[in-house]
């Protein structure tokens, strides 16, 4: 998990105006040929800036995403589920490590990224600003939020920046476990008692709106990202990603006999696209700007963890080592 619905800065026409036109042409030609860009290659400032932003958001989403699921480890039903959830949460934090390293190769230190997260300057996936009331909410995340993230990550793994692609390849390999595990949990709830079925149905009611938000604002209103798509930073539009997710998972949810809280949701057989009620983008903006039910708690938990762990890092600090930018 959990890359998705990245928020890019608005791009101004003069953002690339100052770049060396010959170098820029070579850079773009290389991307067109399908070659990867490596950390020591020349790259436009805008490319570096937006990549750092995107990979950093992705890394923070892994770290923050571990919280709503992590909270259920001690209360997961049974020993096996506890072990599995613990392994999954460990994976998510591990993915955060891989992604921070990839972003570091672009010149932003890991500590600066963590500072920006704690101080509220950097964003993370909006979906984690919602609470997991029940075990079923946790299962919704494990199955469907992960599924959404996989759609996004498989696309991004074909992007142009070498270190990010390599990190994503590792991440996607581990996601297959997450997805199978999540589906397994949901099958057990679906085929269980009426109470278990109701629990998951209620989770769908709660999580459907954030799930639709997950892929980011509609293409009609989102920041123009043509140049980022040309540079293979962003690999597909938000609406295309959302459509792909709906195509793969709505039939699976319906198959289990659950209801999705959107009367307009159906696939248009002529266009092959899904039709749905337009998500509430004002709500999306409100939550991303700090107004969601859990924004404060998520950052507070991170900040307390940082403060309480500081003495350990102080104790381990060794003058002989030095933080430097990773190689690849």
């Amino acid at each position: 998990m959990y890359g998705g619905g990245n928020i890019f800065d608005e791009i101004k026409p003069d953002d690339v105006a100052g770049e060396d036109s010959i170098k820029l042409a070579e850079f773009e030609a290389r991307i067109d040929r399908g070659e990867k860009i490596e950390p020591t290659d020349w790259m436009p400032k805008l490319y570096r800036k937006q990549l750092i932003r995107m990979i950093e958001q992705h890394a923070h989403s892994e770290i923050i995403g571990a919280l709503p699921e992590g909270t259920w480890i001690t209360r997961a039903p049974g020993f096996k589920r506890k072990m599995a959830l613990m392994a999954k949460v460990q994976d998510e934090v591990g993915h955060g490590q891989l992604l921070y390293s990839a972003a570091e190769t672009l010149g932003k230190s890991r500590e600066q990224m963590i500072d920006d997260l704690i101080n509220g300057k950097s964003k993370y996936s909006n979906v984690f600003n919602y609470p997991t009331f029940t075990w079923a909410d946790c299962c919704f995340i494990s199955w469907l939020v992960d599924a959404g993230a996989i759609v996004n990550q498989l696309a991004n793994a074909k992007g142009s920046y070498g270190p990010y692609c390599r990190a994503l390849e590792r991440i996607c390999a581990e996601e297959s476990f997450h997805l199978k595990y999540g589906h397994h949990c949901v099958i057990y709830l679906a085929s269980g008692t009426q109470k278990q079925r109701d629990m998951f149905q209620e989770a769908i009611y709660r999580w459907w709106p954030p799930m639709m938000h997950f892929f980011g604002p509609s293409d009609k209103i989102s920041v123009h990202t043509e140049i980022l798509m040309k540079w293979k930073v962003k690999m597909d539009t938000n609406d295309n990603m959302r459509n792909q997710f709906l195509d793969m998972y709505v039939p699976k949810i319906w198959e289990l006999g659950f209801t999705i809280p959107d009367p307009k949701l159906k696939k248009n057989t002529a266009t092959g696209r899904w039709e749905y009620t337009e998500p509430d983008w004002d709500e999306f903006k409100r939550v991303i700007n700090g107004g969601g039910p859990c924004n404060k708690e998520r950052l507070e938990v991170r900040r307390i963890a940082e403060e309480r762990g500081r003495w350990v890092r102080e104790a381990l600090r060794a003058p002989k080592t030095e933080y430097i930018t990773p190689l690849a």
């Binding site: 230190s109 704690i118 600090r317 080592t321």
Partner: peptide
């Protein structure tokens, strides 16, 4: 938070 408690 206090800056630079980074590892190698």
């Amino acid at each position: 938070k206090v800056l630079l408690d980074q590892f190698g």
